[in-house]
């Protein structure tokens, strides 16, 4: 957890009792809320609520990977999404990571097959997941 945060992020803590004005400015209505920003000051993702240490780590890596994907750092995004699917099995982040792994691979290569492979993996491992539903249109992609 510490290594993930310090290697990849500049960490900031905003305390409600000392900097409560920033809660309103950034539309934070409940805590804990963790937000991920880029170096241009743009917020990419946020999540609210308590997670186990392993789920928290997986969620931070997943959302960091999605931010890197938006910044077109596809190789890093793919590496991190693979890490979530392999090293954080059993965490809540895995189905979404499988979905976005296909997306990142497609954006990187313009080959649509990873989208379909992601759907197949989701159907096999997480048939009831919302992310399996979201990936359903990719069944039209031939392998």
């Amino acid at each position: 957890m510490v290594k993930v945060v310090t290697d990849w992020f500049i960490p900031v803590r905003i305390s409600g009792d000392k900097q409560g004005d920033l809660f309103g400015k950034h539309l934070v209505t409940w805590t804990p809320t963790i937000t991920i920003w880029d170096g241009e000051g743009r917020e990419h993702y946020r999540f609210t609520g308590f997670l186990t240490p392993e789920d928290l780590c997986a969620r931070i890596i997943l959302d960091g990977a999605k931010a890197e994907m938006a910044l077109k750092n596809y190789d890093l995004a793919i590496k991190c999404l693979n890490d979530v699917t392999k090293k954080y099995k059993g965490t809540c982040a895995v189905p979404e990571a499988i979905f976005y792994l296909g997306v990142a691979q497609y954006l990187s290569s313009h080959n649509p097959k990873p989208l379909r492979e992601g759907l197949d993996s989701l159907r096999k491992e997480f048939p009831q997941s919302e992310w399996t539903l979201r990936a359903k249109p990719y069944e039209l992609i031939n392998l």
Partner: peptide, 30 residues
């Protein structure tokens, strides 16, 4: 041990220099 800053603006500037992302934890103590 994580060394937490308390300024989003400073963190964003540092993130740009070091090509990193910023993680902001909004919390209520106690």
């Amino acid at each position: 041990m994580i060394s937490w800053g308390d300024s989003i603006e400073k963190a964003v500037k540092k993130a740009k220099e070091e090509k990193k992302l910023v993680l902001v934890d909004f919390f209520n103590p106690g």
